[in-house]
């Protein structure tokens, strides 16, 4: 197991170098001049030249890429070209908020999705199953940002239960977490349901029932454990995707997260920010994937035996 984790961590190195190369090349070939964006529509050619010089934009490709990789190894991504703050400071002012939002949304999705999925699988074709499926389909189909908007209007403006925007207190967290978590909850619910249905019909469940196990043990110990593998995959992928930021939801609720910030940095051609931010997202995504793979081992001993 330890060897497996170490091997996976080492495998991240070529992945990250690949990511760095791709971000860098994309930034390099992108048309437009960052010094122009910094100085605006009307700036003298001399000023543009000075800023280009300062940002070392005229250095050859390999020198620029080399210094980027070299600095990245020491976790020094330089300063934002716009604000002049260290990239590290800019990103870590926002990344915890994004982590928190993503984490809470996935937990909300699991808390809603898994029990409902189990319930609708064990009570297949009941009225509950139908309602749960229909609501699930609806929740999965509604875009996050639209649901967020509607919630702000209803619970923020009309009922005045929650603040309409901002981040900081638990009251601020409720609406964005629900808005983002709803569709994931629906997907997890449907995933749990179908995967539970498959397990419930398998031979070992029949055996468990035949030997007189209590139904709750059959469902939660025998069936659920097997059914959780695909659910874990979906939850992990959702969490990973949310680490890149839920741009529209962040915008509506004015959450100081990484997603919107990165979009702005890209449109401003703030290359140090974009490179640092994308690399951080890539690292966290890889780590989350690794974590999911490790979780499999705890859920399913058969998988554990394969991790060598």
């Amino acid at each position: 197991m330890h060897k497996y984790i170490l091997r996976r961590l080492l495998m991240m190195i070529p992945v990250l170098i690949g990511v760095m190369f791709i971000i860098f090349v994309l930034d390099y070939i992108r048309p437009g001049c960052p010094s122009r964006v910094i100085l605006g529509e009307a700036a003298s050619p001399e000023a543009i030249a000075r800023v280009r010089e300062e940002l070392r934009l005229d250095d050859p490709f390999l020198i620029r890429f080399g210094s980027f990789v070299g600095n990245a190894l020491t976790l020094d991504f330089g300063r934002s070209w716009q604000t002049n703050r260290p990239v590290f400071q800019e990103i870590f002012a926002r990344f915890p908020n994004t982590m928190q939002l993503a984490g809470m949304s996935v937990i909300f999705a699991l808390l809603m999705g898994v029990p409902l999925g189990i319930l609708s699988a064990t009570k297949q074709y009941s009225i509950f199953d139908i309602i749960a499926n229909f609501t699930g389909l609806l929740a999965a189909a509604i875009p996050n940002f639209w649901l967020g908007m509607m919630m702000v209007i209803l619970f923020g403006v009309n009922l005045r239960i929650f603040p309409t925007s901002g981040w900081g207190t638990p009251m601020h967290w409720v609406m964005p977490v629900v808005a983002i978590g709803a569709s994931s909850a629906a997907i997890i619910m449907r995933m749990t349901r179908s995967s539970m249905l498959e397990c419930i019909r398998s031979d070992y469940i029949r055996t468990a029932r035949a030997k007189g196990q209590k139904e709750s043990v059959v469902i939660f110990k025998h069936a659920l454990r097997n059914a959780l593998i695909p659910v874990t995959t979906v939850a992990g992928l959702t969490f990973g995707a949310l680490l890149g930021g839920a741009v529209l939801t962040e915008t509506i609720f004015a959450i100081p997260g990484l997603g919107r910030f990165m979009v702005e940095a890209i449109s401003q051609m703030d290359q140090p920010l974009v490179q640092g931010g994308v690399l951080l997202i890539a690292i966290s995504f890889s780590l989350v994937n690794l974590l999911v793979d490790i979780l499999y081992a705890f859920i399913d001993p058969r998988i554990r035996s394969q991790y060598r």
């Binding site: 908007m149 702000v152 209007i153 923020g156 403006v157 005045r160 603040p163 309409t164 925007s165 901002g166 915008t251 509506i252 609720f253 004015a254 100081p256 919107r260």
Partner: peptide, 18 residues
């Protein structure tokens, strides 16, 4: 000075007195 990027969200926060 608080950043609220979405114009409708800004308006709603004034409506609610935030």
């Amino acid at each position: 000075y608080r950043l609220v990027p979405d114009p409708s969200s800004r308006l709603m926060a004034v409506e609610t007195g935030e």
